[in-house]
Simulated scan of single mutants.
Amino acid sequence: MTKPAKEPRIRYDEGCLAAHALNLIGDRWALLVVRELMFAPKRFQMIRAGLPGITASVLTGRMTQLSQAGVIDHDERLGIYTLTEAGRGLLPVLEALCRWALTVPGHDPSRFISPSALMISMGVNLVADRAQGRQALAGFDFGSEAFEMRLTDGRLQTSSVGRPDVPFVLRGNGNTLAAAVYGATPLPALISKGMVDAEGDIAAAESFLSLFRLAPQT
């Protein structure tokens, strides 16, 4: 006989909707686990690779909590975790946190940045007036993960792919590619230093990267 699912742990005994949300996804690491699953299903070790500060036991606990809360599904046969519709609905929450973080001091971009974190960040930091009316396709390859970005009239859509099939692909880790997107060093200089690898139309890549700015968007 299947045991009934445990009720999510109540952290805040309030009728406030924000408190209800935090009862479900307010534990440490929970939203970052969601971040790592936002673009594609993953196995346990791949999720952990995007969260280098977490222990296996803590991650197991968070996955269990998020499953009980209806935020993730776990295919035990394949060992794959995926977001439910409710979990995917947390993307605007992550984006709002990124926007808020731009308004307060202390952000240190030299610390670890996962591929999924950079992809979400780029969606937040697209400069609307620069992107308006533009169309572009871009690829980002992190080795273990790869993504395509499609810009259509100011709207950015990001998809996880096996191999980008686009006019240009930038390769590196989360931090080096974040430097390419937001840093002051031109892309050709980053390529010459070996920080970033590039394939395809470099001029198109530079033009695409110019559409992003790590600053509050007005």
Rank of each mutant, 00 (worst) to 15 (best):
L66R: 08
F168Y: 15
G174A: 13
G26D: 07
S114C: 10
R35F: 07
A18I: 10
D75Y: 04
V166F: 03
D27A: 15
L90R: 04
A56Y: 00
A184I: 02
A203V: 12
A5Q: 04
L187G: 09
I54K: 14
I191N: 13
D129P: 00
Y81C: 05
L91N: 08
G106E: 02
Y12G: 01
A40E: 12
R11G: 03
I25Q: 14
C16M: 11
E148S: 05
L209F: 02
V124C: 07
L97V: 05
P115F: 02
L209I: 01
G26Q: 08
V181F: 03
R155N: 01
A117M: 07
P105E: 10
L91Y: 10
A184P: 06
L209H: 00
R88T: 12
A30D: 15
L51M: 10
A203P: 00
R48M: 15
W100K: 12
D13G: 01
S192H: 13
Q217R: 12
L97G: 09
R171C: 07
P167F: 02
P92Q: 12
L137S: 13
M63D: 07
I10Y: 00
A215L: 05
L94I: 14
Y81W: 10
L83T: 01
I54F: 11
G87I: 07
G143W: 07
R62L: 06
Q65F: 01
G61S: 04
F147V: 13
N175R: 15
L170A: 04
S57C: 03
G50I: 04
A204L: 04
M122W: 02
G106Y: 02
C16E: 15
P216Y: 01
M63H: 12
G162F: 01
E7H: 06
G154E: 09
S67I: 12
A49Y: 04
L32T: 08
P8H: 02
G174K: 13
R62T: 03
L83S: 01
G174S: 14
P41N: 08
S207N: 12
S159L: 06
G162Q: 06
W29K: 03
G154Q: 07
E206R: 15
T64G: 06
D13Q: 11
L97Q: 12
H74P: 05
F168R: 14
P216M: 04
A131D: 15
I113R: 14
L156N: 07
E85P: 00
L137Y: 08
I54L: 09
A5Y: 00
A128I: 08
G172S: 09
Q65I: 03
R150C: 05
G183P: 05
H74G: 02
Y182K: 09
E14M: 15
V181K: 03
A184S: 13
L59Q: 02
S67N: 15
M119T: 01
V58Q: 12
S116G: 12
